[in-house]
Amino acid sequence: MNQDEYQKLVKQFTPKERKFKNAVVSFLVGGCIGFVGQIFVTILTENYHLGMIEASSWLCLFLILFASVLTALGFFDTWVTKGKAGFIIPTTGFAHSITSAALDYKKEGLITGLGSNFFKLAGSVILYGIISAFFFAVLGVIFYG
């Protein structure tokens, strides 16, 4: 059996992922987080008379704290495996990636461990986030002045 034949065989024996089910679960879980977030923002704007931008910033901070604390307590990874991308796509996923890396490397020193590995997973999000933000900003200026 040559390599190509074997790779075909592997494909045939690989169990199919339930993509549709995963997408539905992610949509519902992500939607619920969005819904809770909206309630949070509404309360802040209505009851505490905060502006929309301020309220959204508070929400972001709250989600980050929520994900980080739960990651540290050891719950969040199990939730992600059940709730799929629904837990990853909101800011929660970003916070989760940083906290989990920090937990892993804290025993290897503040500089050589925690500091150097803090953005191990989140580094890509930050780098490509900034680059794409730059290009979208340029496009924005070109099209909308």
Partner: peptide, 17 residues
């Protein structure tokens, strides 16, 4: 997990294989 895959507490989604 730490060496070959993701940080321990990171809930990476894994295929069935």
């Amino acid at each position: 997990e730490k060496q070959f895959r993701f940080p321990i507490e990171y809930g990476a989604l894994k295929p069935k294989t």
